[in-house]
Simulated scan of single mutants.
Amino acid sequence: MIDIRKSLRGKYQEEEINVMPLVDMVFLLLIFFMVTTSFVKEAGIDVHRPTAATAQLKDKGNILLGVSADGRIFFEKKAIDLRSVRAHIERSLAESPEGAVVIVADQKSDTGVIVRVMDQCRLAGARRVSIAATRPGAKG
């Protein structure tokens, strides 16, 4: 409550709300969510994956390569040449040494292109190279 006598004499000071702790807390939460968020990298194309009854979910440190039905190769939403696959995979493995390479190929893509992409991945030093598939009855 305002003291009238103090305000008339000029000794009254207005109360202030200190918002700095609130700002500090918001920044701490922002940093926390930025650090704990995992970013999903996509191959860059929409494909119709083949189905496989033994398909397994792999969710840790995947490096994705896309192969379209017409044989084009995509890495991080960019079309790349077969000759540059090895360099891209080497760079990605340097950033994430435990990463597994997953080739997301269209079911109508040429097997020869997929084999050459797998070969380039292995030459780049990838120990785990697999092809993405969906389980029968699953959407995707």
Rank of each mutant, 00 (worst) to 15 (best):
I2G: 08
I2D: 12
I2F: 07
I2K: 14
R5W: 11
K6I: 13
S7Q: 14
L8W: 09
R9E: 15
I17F: 06
N18H: 08
N18G: 03
V19L: 15
P21H: 07
L22I: 01
V23H: 07
M25N: 05
V26A: 10
F27V: 04
L28F: 06
L29F: 08
L29T: 07
I31H: 05
T36D: 01
T36K: 06
T37G: 02
S38R: 15
F39D: 12
K41P: 14
K41R: 15
E42I: 15
I45T: 04
I45M: 07
I45G: 02
D46G: 12
V47Q: 02
H48Q: 13
H48K: 15
P50S: 13
A52L: 06
A53L: 09
T54E: 13
T54M: 06
A55G: 04
L57P: 10
L57Q: 05
L57G: 05
L57M: 05
K58M: 09
K58T: 03
K58G: 07
D59H: 04
D59T: 12
S68G: 10
A69I: 00
A69H: 07
D70S: 11
D70W: 13
R72H: 13
F74E: 04
F75Q: 02
K77P: 11
A79K: 15
A79N: 12
D81L: 11
L82T: 12
L82V: 14
V85Q: 04
R86Q: 15
A87T: 14
H88P: 06
I89H: 03
L93K: 02
S96Q: 12
P97K: 08
P97N: 09
P97V: 03
E98S: 10
E98I: 09
E98C: 05
G99W: 02
A100C: 08
A100D: 09
V101K: 01
V102L: 08
I103Q: 01
I103S: 01
I103F: 03
D106K: 00
Q107L: 09
K108P: 10
S109N: 01
D110N: 13
D110H: 07
D110S: 11
D110K: 08
T111D: 06
G112Y: 02
G112M: 04
G112K: 04
G112I: 00
V113R: 09
I114C: 03
V115W: 03
V115C: 02
R116A: 13
R116G: 02
V117Y: 00
M118H: 06
M118E: 13
D119W: 09
D119C: 10
Q120A: 13
Q120E: 15
Q120M: 14
R122V: 15
R127G: 13
R127D: 15
R127H: 12
R128S: 06
V129H: 12
I131A: 08
I131Q: 11
A132T: 01
A132C: 05
A133Y: 00
P136A: 04
G137D: 04
G137M: 04
G140P: 05
